[in-house]
């Protein structure tokens, strides 16, 4: 038991999520090994985003447990889960549009460089030092995601591709062990998609486990180590990209049985 928890950063077990009569998820059990890129795919409405919302504490599942580093996350609120090392991006970009690029990433440092209301109000020396530390961290991340020259732009002014990068950067600022990316390539052109894929690989190379929801099959097949396929809230397949590509159930779910 112990060696499996050390190996698996995330375990989803017996999770059922019902919204009234609608069964959004029904026991799609799977595990995520530490250090890999795992993709969740499935047709629209398969429950992928719902699963993300459960993992990050937005929803409490009707049944079942999600374990992060061996511990159930049921008791924790979203911000506590973030502090414990799970970060995420959103399907529809949820940046702080009126804040600058730098400020967006600095906010991500919120849990790692704790400051108090009083200390900042009285501008105590410690508060000033922490502010500088956050700035340095944020600038480093902006260099990593390639947006360092845009640090003073309001986030709203960036094109979609860069907004998506920035969202990933903001998530990285929380220093996650597991990062959940909800359709990072959606709406991006070919070049932007290539940049996004390289960035995801670079993040993974830093030792951060990546859980990915994506529709772009090229991205999925290129970068993921393992794939889980959902359909109508249930897991219909799991395995390596090669295995999934040839899986008849998966093809049927996507294209219908006639194909």
């Amino acid at each position: 038991m112990n060696d499996t928890t050390a190996e698996n950063i995330l375990e989803v077990q017996g999770v059922v999520m019902a919204f009234g009569g609608l069964m959004a998820l029904f026991k799609p059990d799977f595990k995520v090994k530490r250090g890999i890129i795992k993709a969740i795919i499935g047709p629209n409405g398969a429950g992928k985003t719902t699963l993300f919302n459960i993992i990050t504490g937005f929803f409490t599942p009707t049944e079942g447990t999600v374990r992060f580093k061996g511990r159930s996350i049921k008791k924790f609120k979203t911000h506590e889960i973030a502090a414990r090392g799970i970060s995420r991006t959103f399907q529809t970009v949820e940046l702080f549009g009126n804040m600058t690029v730098l400020e967006n990433v600095m906010l991500g440092c919120h849990t790692r460089v704790p400051t108090s209301f009083m200390a900042s109000g009285f501008r105590l020396p410690g508060a000033k030092r922490k502010e500088e530390e956050m700035r340095d961290r944020a600038l480093n991340i902006l260099k990593f995601i390639g947006l360092a020259d845009k640090f003073e732009e309001p986030a709203d002014n960036l094109p979609l591709g860069q907004q998506k990068m920035l969202e990933i950067g903001r998530a990285l600022a929380t220093e996650p062990e597991l990062i959940c990316l909800d359709e990072p390539a959606a709406g991006l052109n070919e070049t932007e998609t290539y940049v996004a894929s390289s960035l995801i690989k670079a993040i993974n190379a830093k030792g951060i486990t990546v859980l990915l929801v994506e529709h772009d099959m090229k991205v999925i097949m290129n970068i993921s180590d393992e794939i889980v396929v959902l359909n109508y809230g249930q897991k219909i397949a799991e395995g390596t990209p090669e295995a999934i590509r040839d899986n008849s159930t998966v093809i049927e779910a996507y294209l219908g049985s006639e194909a």
């Binding site: 949820e94 940046l95 702080f96 804040m99 929380t174």
Partner: peptide, 14 residues
């Protein structure tokens, strides 16, 4: 300011 723009995003940033 983050809360004002998106509570969901602020929450998941900790």
């Amino acid at each position: 300011r983050a809360i004002h723009t998106s509570e969901a995003a602020a929450n998941s940033m900790g």
